[in-house]
Design a binder for these strands. Structure first.
Lengths: 236, 236
DNA sequence: CGTATCATTGACCGGGCTCAAACGCCGTGG
DNA sequence: CCACGGCGTTTGAGCCCGGTCAATGATACG
């Protein structure tokens, strides 16, 4: 019933695609990928490290290689809204011009592949198909944002949690991870700031779901039991 | 204190850029624009008309020419989240592949320029700079989405209203509209569904703001008085 | 003039927030 | 090795913002 942060389980090497800078640009040829690698560098971060800050000039693009990175927007330094959790293969700030509109920080240990904006622009300039990839990527990012806006504006606490957990499970599963006891590396505060709730409400709602037999809370993990039934009315 | 829908004020021709299909592609040459025009068509809509529906196959791109178009996502047909209000010059579903992720409906009379997806893709395929425009456009759309997520998750009702009104004013002002008595063509329900509130809360909060002297409620319009002072702590 | 829809206001309630305390885990230093 | 303190989690008590239900007024429309 208590917490025993098993962060290492998340920094574990992943067997598949995302180990390269462009799990996203998987449509690129091997030669392109190799050259792209040389233009950027792998940067390791430890828990809570900040990759970039809202308002700062945007000089690089980022791609998560290992771990989880939280993307968030703050105001007055007290209120925070985590807009997404980036996983290996996800790209950050690929089209940001000028200044960062959001901040990013590592949730636990992480490795990020970083490339200066000009170098990437130059690389893409004579590879028109790369732009198409980027457009497709941004389109799915926008679709995700719409989903989250609906959740934030129109779902109750319990439904927010269930949808969040099932989506999180689906994303990890798509990366080939073991999700039976679903790893939940982010803190209760992170979850709260992502769903527009408070820490207390997150704890209470999770406890309620556990009492009802919908989930089982383990240290650093959550086992999803009959969320399908509970979430049925909650799915699109 | 009551409502006298002055929708016509919003269908009024606008003097500047957005009268063309691509207020967005304003960087295009005149020749390009003229050809683009011939590939699409101007379609008039009346209030509440649906442009496209979430889940339907996406066959066209849209660009608002006159009026306001609400973009929304629904679930179970009762809950609705309006993710944005599109104004003249705004592009809709430009990069959507497959099916629409959202629906769109006219808020009052509107004129929309529509082009089949294949035709636009063909037009853009040998004009690489068009893709760059699209990427920039989507980047600002994503930044807007982050703003809205913050509002939905971390702002109280009063702050949501104030921020919404000031942003709306700024957008209209950028289009060269008269915003002193700020036109508010959307219904209270639309505003509620955009801010994650109920109709009653929107009414009550607006009334409270009026009582406090921050705004003045007129039929179809709202005059912003000292929102600067009230909104000061609410701005980023 | 009757009807439907929207806006507004009131009464009431409840979900989620606030404040507070207890607990477990971990790192630190004696 | 253990005591201590800090941090994150959990749980309780109480309250308030905002939702629900309901009634009234106002407006557009047929």
């Amino acid at each position: 019933m208590t917490k025993l942060m098993a962060a290492s389980s998340f920094a574990a090497p992943c067997a598949n695609a995302a180990a390269q800078p462009g799990g996203f640009l998987s449509h690129l040829g091997a030669a392109d990928l190799r050259q792209l690698m040389t233009l950027g560098e792998r940067v390791p971060y430890t828990s809570q490290d900040v990759l970039f800050t809202q308002g700062a000039p945007a000089g690089k693009c980022f791609s998560v290689v290992e771990g989880v990175v939280g993307i968030y927007r703050t105001e007055c330094d007290n209120r925070r809204q985590i807009t997404s959790f980036a996983l290996p293969g996800d790209i950050l700030e690929i089209a940001t011009q000028g200044h960062h509109e959001v901040s990013a920080a590592a949730i636990g240990p992480a490795v990020v592949w970083e490339i200066p904006r000009e170098k990437f622009a130059q690389f893409a300039s004579h590879r028109p198909y790369v732009l198409n990839e980027i457009v497709a990527l941004m389109a799915t990012e926008i679709a995700d944002a719409h989903d989250k806006m609906f959740s934030l504006g129109r779902r109750a606490a319990e439904e927010k949690l269930i949808v969040f957990l099932t989506h999180w499970r689906d994303r990890l599963a798509r990366l080939g991870r073991d999700v039976d006891p679903l790893p939940v590396p982010m803190s209760r505060r992170d979850i709260a700031d992502h769903l527009g709730l408070t820490v207390e409400t997150v704890c209470r709602t999770l406890a309620k779901l556990e009492r009802r037999g919908a989930i089982e809370i383990l240290p650093g993990r959550i086992r999803l039991l009959d969320t399908e039934a509970v979430a049925a009315p909650a799915l699109a």
